[in-house]
Write a protein that binds this DNA or RNA. Sequence first.
RNA 1: GCGAGGGUAGCCAAGUGGUCAACGGCGACGGACUCAAGAUCCGUUCUUGAAGAAGUUCAUGGGUUCGAAUCCCUUCCCUCGCACCA
Length: 988
Amino acid sequence: MLRLWEDCFVEEYWCMKPEYDPCEVEDRWQRAWDSAGLFHVDRDSREKFFITIPYPYLNGNLHVGHTRTFTIGDVIARFKRMQGYNVLFPMGFHVTGTPILGLAELIAKKDPQTLDVYHRFHNIPMDLLVTLNTPSKIVEYFKREAEEDMRSIGYSIDWRRKFTTTDDAYKKFITWQFNLLYERGFVGRGSYPVRWCPNDDNPVEDHDILRGEGATIIDYTLIKFRLSESGLVLPCATLRPETVFGVTNLWVNPLVTYLQIEVIYSDDRREEWVVSREACEKLRFTDKRVKIVGEVSGRELIGEHAVNPINGASVLILPASFVSPENGSGIVMSVPAHAPYDYLALRDLYDVDLSEYGISEDIRDIEFISLIRVPGFGEFPAVEVTEELGVTDQSDPRAEEATKIVYRREFHSGELTERTGKYAGMKVSRVKDVLVEEMMERGFADLFYEFSEEPVICRCGARCVVKMVKDQWFLTYSNPEWKEEVYRCLSRMKLLPPEIRTEFENKIDWLKDKACARRRGLGTRLPWDQEWIIESLADSTIYMSYYILSKFIATKVRPEQLTESFFNYVFLGSGSVEAVARETGIPLEVIEDIRADHEYWYPVDLRSSGKDLIPNHLLFFLFHHTAIFPEDRWPRGIAINGFVSLEGEKMSKSKGPLLTMKRAIKEYGADVTRLYILSTAEYTQDADWRSGEIEAVKKHLERFYRIANNIINRRATTGEREEKERDTIDRWLLSRFQHRVSETIDALERLQTRRALQSAFYMVLNDLRWYERRGGKEALPELLHTWTRLLTPFIPHICEEIHSEIAEGFITEAPYPTPDPTQIDKDAERREEYIQKILEDIEEILSVTKIAPEKIILYTTPHWKKNVYQTALRLKLQDGLDMKRVISEIMKDPEVRRHGKEAPKYTQRIIAEIKKMTDETAKLQASNPLPEKEILTETRKFFEKELNCKIEIQSAEKTTYDPQQKSRHAEPMRPAIYIISKDSENER
RNA sequence: GCGAGGGUAGCCAAGUGGUCAACGGCGACGGACUCAAGAUCCGUUCUUGAAGAAGUUCAUGGGUUCGAAUCCCUUCCCUCGCACCA
């Protein structure tokens, strides 16, 4: 390697610019890579590595958040490429769905906020921005920009494979895929509750919501009590259907006017219900129809009796102020044993005269019914908790707290009692689903949906509701067998960081069926029901396989030739190639070529992505792969990284603040941006982009360039290099460097770009500081040669630039360094540590004593201490290091005996020190003790330069000058120090 | 509420049983260079210390251990996700 470097140098005239100009350098190398087609990869005999990053959604420019995820991918792609893999790193563009449509509309109507954000934060000139008023113009614009950005930051992407998710060929691919899913039974149809704006007549998404963004849909059970006389249904909404066994009465608010309504089920069953006006409105959006029949005042209901469907018990209807017509049906079932509100409301009535409602019974006679057993509580947990907290009445805010406590305890550790018949002994947490299902079957109950917080207001100003969307198509992710397959897939995958495995497992459990088609937006139509457009997360689950095909589109294959059998053959290997060739008209060799490419490249080895995609895209990515592909084509790895914030603030595409990739590159250059984003945070940690920090990174990179420049320059001007024996310091530098190399590789294998850069960049820079301080020079060219290669995946442009001065060819194609064990020199490392330690000690003494030194004398250890030290080391390695043994050993030595007083003291201290030592170090110290005197003599000049005073080396064995008897402190590896002050009288 | 992750010096952040007063970066301070500033380079940066040392630290309180930032438990706090939306 050194040869290469020299050959090139002696002859060629050095032409590297002394000042680093990122713009010029980066552009030049990007063009060079491109024209050499470095990243256009095809099937060959090498081992492949297929890495993908989720394609960006084109409703804006790429920003520094994308930059993080994509750059991590590029580093791995470049790293693997240099390691000799045939690396495929492709990119496409995601445009299906509604946001681009929405953006086009906003721009078309010149929405001021949108124009402002896209102008200021997305850096689009205003005159151009206003022309982006259709989805296709938006897609065209951002597609061009995104590719340009990714090129100008130096990503090693095979651009021949790019595509857009609305391309005809891609749509064929999606159609094939959905037909397959449908055939294989992964698609279902049913009704679905969604957040809905009645004014827009559309589902609302988070960003459509003005108020109540956090609201989720909660499913209540509606239990149908019936009035004893009229048979009217009094539906009671509850989150705890199991407590139906403990109902003692119902609650109605006497101040509310209820509606009597006719409820018509989709199968034409009819029932008459009594509910609040608000509840009636909510019911309009369910799959039932409602007709108002009349009004009933709360007062009228109170005093009547109703029948509990579960056990036929007759219960009294009582007044309660806590009952709100806004919640549920406006009628509440009362379970005083387990619900603090019910207990309080009942207690509040104890001394109230209810005769105005025609109630003559004594409320105190109502017996509480205990149906849940909880450890730590008696029969009536609600009563206990209420009393404990001292809740005064039903309007006391602490009633809410009491409710939470009881609910939580009962849910997690409660068990149903005999009172519940066949459910006795079941855990509360398990019984709900079973019970509800059974009650629904028997017509005792129904489902009812509510927002977790009210109100939810749409951007149009209307109040949103929960609507049942009928005949919705969905992917049946809840299918346990499907989940089982995904588990199997996951269990064999490499996940980075490893902690995210539980996250994935939890999310697999949690995943329910998911609607996969919408009425609005860009995308592919559902093949068997053209009314619907396939939802955009559903159409981007296995598209990585499409990259393999996309290379052939437009050159060898036309979209209309992409038939079902074509896909079945190239992706699944089913059918015959002859039949496909006949059917499609695609030449047989081309089909076989595509098939072979698929077999070669697939599966995906690593998908690297932001953490926001775990509960959706990445999960679907796994589900669909297991559904469509055979096991050997299932993904092999996923890596997750965190977000990027801007000076502590969250970025937002639609509201700002936002820093685009374009602007970052323009301001700092591609390599600085890469270096910064890779080194600022690791894995799932969020990175905070700070201009102060990136400026510092820029300076570091400039320093790197300067160092390289100096090395090259010096060589070039010196001309011939005299073959010099390597000094210890050269061996030290190269030895340290081997550790840096192995750590960098280890970190990269785990995708720890931050750790990798700490080692490959910052640590090496620091090593160089010491090296230079020690006067090292000779190892620099050799170091530079390997160092640039080590750094190439991170900062490829500057490395190419340096490399072009010292070697032939692209460094991008050069082999990645591997640690060279022959360069590891433990002695050199120990030597430098020894020197550093002495320097530190002297500096510490100087700073404490504030002596201006005239001269410093270093006394090396006396022989007898060396003996003790070696004996202790030997005994440690023989595993018998204790005071007694050491003493008895060393006392055999007459020389030691002569120091009989000091020896035990010293021994004791040295034992503690040596005990802490690793065996490896001990072995080295024992077998190969450092020649201290020799080292110090060699290093004298260095100390003199550093400390700016004279240095003298003496042996403690026989000193020539030691007025303060400092030499008695001398020990092996720790020479005694005596500092002679400039103002000292007793100078020699 | 449920789930996941986290709380380390002025700030960011590494560290998961001894080699840790704790990598690295920022900031701050000192020095070199310069007429000067900036840039650059070198060094210092918990406290105390007139000799290379000692003391007190890693959210909190307790425990395990010869030994804990690191393991176990308590409490407090922070971030993210909880869906049909990319």
